[in-house]
């Protein structure tokens, strides 16, 4: 996924951001750097502020105090907004309320028209993104004929066609059924693996954070902890206080270790990140079942 040793620059920089919503302190002292090529997940329960900070990254909101820089442009300067919005694309939670176009094609075209691309360029990119997201079969369909997962893929296509530097997924899987969720997660994985995209993924689902490069956990408007998935998911620390749960494999392993009759052989250093690693970890114990 790109050359990790090459010098990476920060595309988005948040510096001690505070955001007041009326009297409510929605964001408190948030400092984050997102570098090119990163897959960052911002985890948090509902109301933690994760969507609020996400909306700062494309100047939909501006900080009450502190600064947000997108490619060194300050979001508070309205002259920058146009460029910022071209650089930072966003896929929203509600699949229905972000499709403008009368057909799939029309919706993909909408963003490209907004940034003033020529007819030839629009035609070219339209075919590219339809290919990338496998929308050929539904390209002429109208929104009401699409499933939730399909609508989200159309939204992704529309954003991709604008060739942004960063794509933010703001709880883009929360309202989908399992099939739709898989469609979107597959699309994100393809963007990362095949196109070295920079992705910020906002979610409350811990399983989606396991595959990230870097995880940030938010709670009550504050950034409570950050690190690689390996660093974040330990048996210490209290994710429940933040409205989150450990991934199943870790939860189960912990219960298993607690239940282990012969505690001399327990190994708390192992952190199984998925079910296969869990099985491997369990195999190391001589289970007579």
């Amino acid at each position: 996924m790109g050359d990790k040793t090459a010098a990476r620059y920060a595309i988005i920089e948040a510096d001690q951001v505070m955001f007041y919503y009326g009297d409510n302190i929605a964001l408190s002292n948030i400092s984050i750097d997102i570098t090119q090529g990163q897959h960052v997940v911002i985890l948090g329960a509902n109301g933690s502020g994760k969507s609020t900070i996400a909306k700062h990254f494309n100047a939909l909101l501006t900080p009450t105090k502190g600064d947000i820089l997108v490619k060194k442009m300050n979001t508070k300067d309205a002259n920058n907004t146009w460029e910022i919005r071209k650089s930072v694309g966003m896929v929203f939670q509600n699949p229905e309320n972000q499709i403008i176009g009368a057909t799939v094609e029309d919706d993909i075209i909408f963003g490209m028209e907004n940034i003033g691309l020529s007819t030839e360029e629009i035609a070219k990119r339209l075919e590219q993104v339809i290919d990338m997201l496998q929308l050929q079969a539904i390209r002429k369909k109208e929104p009401y004929q699409l499933s939730g997962g399909q609508k989200q893929r159309v939204a992704i296509a529309g954003i991709l066609a604008m060739e942004p530097d960063v794509i933010i997924f703001d709880e883009a899987t929360s309202m989908l059924d399992p099939e739709g969720r898989n469609e979107v997660l597959k699309a994100i994985a393809a963007l990362i693996n095949e196109h070295s995209a920079t992705i910020i993924h906002i979610t409350h689902d811990i399983e989606e954070a396991i595959v990230a490069d870097y995880v940030l956990i938010m709670s009550a408007g504050m950034l409570v902890t950050e690190g690689t998935p390996e660093q974040i998911f330990t048996y210490q620390g209290n994710l429940e206080a933040y409205g989150l749960q450990l991934p199943f494999s870790m939860q189960f392993y912990k219960l298993f270790l607690d239940a282990k009759a012969d505690s001399s052989t327990v190994n708390y250093d192992t952190i199984p990140m998925n079910i296969d690693e869990l099985v491997d970890a369990l195999c190391k114990y001589s289970l007579k079942m």
Binding site: K55, N58, L60, W82, R85, K86, G89, M90, F92, N94, N97, Q98, I100, F110, G111, N114, I115, G158, I159, M162
Partner: peptide, 12 residues
Amino acid sequence: ELAIAMEARGYR
């Protein structure tokens, strides 16, 4: 939500 989505896609 539509207005926000439109703005996010560069509509002005």
